[in-house]
Amino acid sequence: MSNNKSETKPLEKIIELRLPSRLGYERVAMDTASSLARRMGFQGDRVDALKTAVSEAVTNAIEHGNQHDAAMKVVVLLTVRDDELIVSVADQGRQLLDQNNVTRTPHIEDILDKSDKGGWGIWLIRELVDEVEFTTAPTGGNQVRMVIHLER
């Protein structure tokens, strides 16, 4: 018997991971995303790219969004669809991301001149995944939504 609902809505499954804002936990998110992407059939280089992007997004959430407050959570939602994997990373927004920073390409000379060599994360994420979106969640935190497409 056919079910019209399931034909129109893409079938998706969600895995939710809640991590304390402490550096090191980005590895748990990386390994979970990698385990899922491999089982979905993504090639090794794409899995590696996703791991780096997830690591950057979770590290940003811990360091900037939640300001290293271990009591604040970073929520990673992994949404599995037939043809894509969506990874959304949300923090509790103690510090909000400046929207002017989300599209800028950093100049290596400028960054080498600064004592803090950070500032590559957002650019790197853009380079590594197929789609990316930086928004403020309805609850007030920062949210990064990254998508990789499965090419068969």
Binding site: L17, R18, L19, P20, T32
Partner: peptide
């Protein structure tokens, strides 16, 4: 001192 939560289908 440390905790995490996970939810799967």
């Amino acid at each position: 001192s440390a905790s995490m939560e996970l939810s799967i289908p």
